[in-house]
């Protein structure tokens, strides 16, 4: 471990992985909520054209990729908002145009090799340099700050756009900000995960978090934790196993997803067996319902014909006959 940390490129790769692991799932939450899970993939395609322009012109590829991805993000949002049926086709033209242009331009440049292209598409721990790292860290801080500040608004707009509009919220502005944040995240994650695999780091930790969490707030925290576990863990494994970092990170995220889903299935079965539902219940208990309310540990039971009923999800749970509970 210490031997690995003595290598400058490994230290840089681990920091880059940490940044990507935080930013990608954070922004991805809102993409999942808006059912736009694959949009990051499209932005990654367009970002490749930006990378190629950077390599050809001798600019830093991170910056040219950022310009291309932000352009794609804003275009996607405007096309989506126009609501035209041809929008879907326009997106396809833009995404594949981007990746095709990227491949052609990189092949034309004398400064790069096919290995270089693979590194951008699938991620490689060796590609991050110190200068890049500063830019990536600054971008991650921007993503974090804006997302945390606007989280309630992003949630509101993604949850019910019509209501947000009726409540006078600037829906389009929030959607555009989210699109730009997604573009920035694509660029932040580009070096470690690769442009073709970025979407996975945005979406899969969120899918896992949905299984573990019971609220939106906790699902965001789980997603970030799982994202960091996958990205940092993936980079470590890729060092030892000498595998490409991007693929390793994504496989790691998928392994976590499968493990959590499997365990959660077992846990749910155990819970179902342990909890009893009250008989068909045509009545809602409340302060004015006429049934006596009694404290029961951390909640309130209502006495209904001698039985204790407690609110659970959409129904009432049977918490036993009142006298028996009291005697216990």
């Amino acid at each position: 471990m210490t031997e690995m940390l003595e290598l400058t490129f490994m230290r840089q790769a681990l920091v880059a992985a940490l940044l990507a692991g935080v930013a990608a799932p954070l922004v991805g939450t809102f993409l999942v909520q808006r059912r736009m899970s694959l949009i990051g993939d499209g932005m990654g395609h367009v970002a490749l054209a930006g990378v190629a322009v950077g390599i050809l012109t001798g600019q830093a590829p991170v910056l040219t990729a950022l310009v291309a991805a932000v352009f794609a993000g804003v275009a996607i949002e405007l096309i989506r908002a126009s609501g035209r049926t041809s929008g879907d086709v326009a997106l396809a033209v833009m995404f594949y145009g981007g990746i095709a242009l990227g491949v052609v331009l990189i092949a034309r440049s004398t400064a790069s090799s096919p290995a270089n292209l693979t590194a951008y598409l699938f991620g490689a721990i060796l590609t991050t340099n110190a200068g890049d790292l500063v830019v990536l860290a600054a971008l991650t801080v921007v993503v974090l700050a804006v997302t945390l500040l606007l989280r309630p608004r992003f949630f509101a707009v993604a949850n019910d756009e019509e209501y947000a509009r009726a409540a006078g919220m600037p829906v389009m502005a929030y959607n555009l900000v989210l699109a730009v944040l997604t573009a920035v995240t694509v660029v932040v994650s580009m070096r470690v995960v690769g442009l073709l695999l970025i979407s996975a780091l945005m979406i899969i930790p969120n899918a896992t978090a949905q299984v573990l969490a019971r609220s939106f707030g906790s699902s965001v925290r789980w997603a970030v934790l799982l994202g960091v576990l996958s990205s940092v863990g993936g980079v470590l494994v890729s060092y030892w196993a000498e595998t490409p970092s991007g693929g390793t990170i994504v496989l790691m995220a998928i392994a976590l997803f499968l493990a959590v889903t499997g365990l959660a299935g077992l846990a749910a079965r155990a819970r179902r067996a342990a909890h009893r539902r009250a008989e068909r219940h045509d009545h809602e208990h409340g302060p004015r319902c006429g049934h006596e309310a009694v404290e029961h540990d951390d909640h309130v039971d209502y006495l209904h014909d001698g039985h204790r009923h407690a609110a659970h999800e959409g129904h009432y749970d049977e918490h036993g006959r009142h006298e028996e509970v009291v005697q216990r």
Binding site: R34, F155, Q210, S215, F216, S219
Partner: peptide
């Protein structure tokens, strides 16, 4: 909802 959300959050 495509993501989890509690009554209070909504």
């Amino acid at each position: 909802t495509s993501v989890r959300a509690t009554v209070t959050e909504i």
